[in-house]
Design a protein around this nucleic acid. Sequence first.
DNA 1: CGGAACGTTAGGCAAGTTGGCTAACTATTG
DNA 2: CAATAGTTAGCCAACTTGCCTAACGTTCCG
Lengths: 384, 384
Amino acid sequence: MTRLAGSSKLLRAINESATLALLLDRGTLTRGDLRELTGLSKPTTSEVMRRLTDAGLAVVVGHTSGGPGPSAEIYAANPAAGHAIAISVREAGRPHLSAVLCDLAGAEVARAEVAAAADPLPAVTGLVDDLSRRAGLAPGSTRLVQLALPGSYDPAAGVIRHIDVPGWDRPGLVADLAARLGATVAADNDVNLAAIAERHHGVAGAVESFALVWFSGGLGLAIDLGGTLLRGARGGAGEIGYVPVGLGRGADRTDLTDLVGGPAVLRLAGTHGIAAATPEAAVAAAVSSADAGPFLDALAERIAYGLAAVAAVLDPPLVVLAGDVGRAGGEALATRVTAALRATTPLDPAIAVTGVPGDPVLRGAQAAANHALRAQIIASSAPR
Amino acid sequence: MTRLAGSSKLLRAINESATLALLLDRGTLTRGDLRELTGLSKPTTSEVMRRLTDAGLAVVVGHTSGGPGPSAEIYAANPAAGHAIAISVREAGRPHLSAVLCDLAGAEVARAEVAAAADPLPAVTGLVDDLSRRAGLAPGSTRLVQLALPGSYDPAAGVIRHIDVPGWDRPGLVADLAARLGATVAADNDVNLAAIAERHHGVAGAVESFALVWFSGGLGLAIDLGGTLLRGARGGAGEIGYVPVGLGRGADRTDLTDLVGGPAVLRLAGTHGIAAATPEAAVAAAVSSADAGPFLDALAERIAYGLAAVAAVLDPPLVVLAGDVGRAGGEALATRVTAALRATTPLDPAIAVTGVPGDPVLRGAQAAANHALRAQIIASSAPR
DNA sequence: CGGAACGTTAGGCAAGTTGGCTAACTATTG
DNA sequence: CAATAGTTAGCCAACTTGCCTAACGTTCCG
C-alpha cells in the first residue's frame, strides 16, 4: 500500500498526474471532458492544463466545431514529451539487434537492425545514438530503453542468466548501460515480451489472464496474470522445458524439451516421413499437405501433455500457442491440441494461435517500453 | 491504477487513512512518532488524532515517561472498532464448523465448534450470533466473515465449486449469507488460507513468494506471490492432482493423485510392509521407525516429481510441505524430497515443513479476516 | 430569404472555504 | 532550568461556487 500523506502540494501533484494519465489513456480530451472525468472544477482544470502545457507535457491538437457555443480546445499528451527505444537481442551466428524508437504516443519514429560487435556496451550505445540522431533528437533525450533478451534477467543480482549471446552474461551490464545512456534500462525475457504483444495486438486483449507457450528452437512459457507477468524467484518462471515426463531417472529421464523442443519436433517429423531443415518448416509442410494428420496429431498430443501440467498449476482461461512452430501450426494444430487436452484432463482452457503480426518480441518490447515511459512521465509530473 | 483527483477533503481523507494504517501496522505510536512517519506537522497530527479518536477508531493506551518534558500520549487503533469472524468448514461425517471471533487487533475474543445441520444458512447465522452474544457485542456488529472451504469459490459466478459438504454448493449462498448477516462475507479455499497462515505464523514469513503443497486425503497447492494468492480462471489454480504422469491415455492414464493422493500413499506404505488406517499415520509410523527409509524414499521421489512440474512453471524460492501427511513427514521427508528433486531437475527451490501449530486453516482464515477487516476500516475512514 | 434575437457552451475572474504549515506560546517533568 | 508535548494564532496554497463575457448554432420574424 502506498502510505502517502501530505499537504496542498501533494494535492496539486495528484491532480496533475491524474489529468496527465487520463490524457495518455484516452488520447484527446477537451477541458470539459477532463472536468467530468476528474471531478475537478473549471478553474482548477484550466490551471492544471496551463501547467501541463507550460511543462511541455500536453499540447493543443485541435478545436471542436459543429455544436453551439465557442469551440473548445482539444488537448493531447505531447507525443514529443518523451521517447523510448525497444531493442530485441538475439543470436544469429553473431549477436543481432533489432530496435525501434517510438514517442510517448507509441508511434514509431525510427527503426534499425544491426549485426553487432561482440561487446554489448558499444553496440547498444551506438544503436541508441544512431536512432536518436536519425529521429532528430538531442543525444541523451531517450529516457527509457527496453531490452528483449533470450534469457532471464535477475534484477536483484543485476545479471542476465541463461543467455547464449556472447558478452551479455556479464554481471552489471544492465546497470552499466543505464549509466552510459543516462536512461532507465529495463530488461525482460523475449517470451514475456511476446506475451505483452499478445495482450496489446493479439488474441489476448480481453482476457483477465493467459499463458503463452513459445515453441521455437527452445521452449518457453509466459504467464500473464491480469496484465502483470509472473517472473519467479530468479526470473526462472516458465522454464517448462524442465517439466518431467514419466518417472524415469538418470539417462532414462525425459522432460518436455525431449518431447516438443525444436530437435524433438524435427525427429518426430522424420518418423512421419517429413524432412525439413527447421521444426517450423516441418510443421508448415504438414499443415499445408493433405495427409500429414498423424504427425500433427502426435505433436498435439505431446503439447497437450505439457499444457495439462501448466493448466493444473495455473488454471488459465486462455493458452496462446506462439513462436515459429506455434504460428506455423495455426488453427490446424490448435484444434488438435484442444482435442488432445480434453481427452486427457478435466481442465479446459481455451487454446488459440498467436494473433500478433510481424516480430512479436520487438512489438512486445515496444509496448512495454511505451508503458514504462508513460509511468515515468506521470511520476515525474508529480515531484515528490 | 487508482485515478484519484479531488480537493481538500481528499487530502484529509488521505492523511487520516495513512495515519490509521500506520497505527494498525505498528501497534502503538505517540503523536511525535506519527509526525515523523507521515511527515505532517504537529497541529495537523493533533487534528487527525482528534478526529480518529472521536470516530472511535483510535484510543489512548498509555503515556510515555522517563524523558524530560511532559509525557506524550501513546495511541493505538481501537481494537473494539471492528470485529471479524473466521469459520472453517469441513466434512466429518456431517458438516462441521470451527469458528473464531477476533477484534481489530487480531486478538481472539471467542471460539466455537459445532457439528452443524444440513442447511448452511441457519448454521452459520446461528454460529455468528452465538459468538457475538458470548463476546458481548451487539448483534450485527460483526462486519466481516471469512469462510474457509474445502472447495473453490468463484466470486464471478457467486458459487462454491468442487465442495463435498452437503448444501454448500448452492448458487448464491455466499451472497445470501452476506445479506442475512449484514456483513461482508469472504470465501476462500482451505489450502489457500493455510498458505496465509504459513506466511503469518509459519516458515514463509520472510520470502517474497512460495508454494504450499497440501498432502492429506486430497492433494492441493496454494501459490503465494508476494502476499497475494493466485486463484486461476475459475478458482481452479493449484489443482495439481491433475498433473499428468507419463503419456498414458484412457485407463492407462496416471496423474499425481494416483501417485501421492491419500489412497496412493496408503498403498505405497502397504507395499513396504507398513499398515495404517490413514496416510498420515502410515507416514508418522515410518518416520518414527528405524528401518522405514525405503518407504519415505519412494514417497519423496513421487512428491519430487510433482514439485518438479510446479517448479518448472512457477520457480518459487520456497516450497512448503503441509497437510496432515506433510506435517507427519517432517524434516525426514523434506530432506528426502530435496535430495530427490536435486537428483532429477536443475531447479532448486528450498523445501521446508510447515511451521504452523494447531489448525492452519482456521489460523489462516483468522489472519485473512483480520487483514480484510483492517482494509475495510481504513477504507471506511476515507468516505467516498 | 436575410438578419437579429435566443439559447448553449467555453473559458475567465472574484470571492469564499478548507486544510495544512509555521511560529510563538504554555505547560510539564526530570 | 532545559527539554519536550501539545495548543493557539495567523498565513498560505489550492480548490469551489457563482457570475460574467464571448463565441457559435439555431430559429424566427420582417
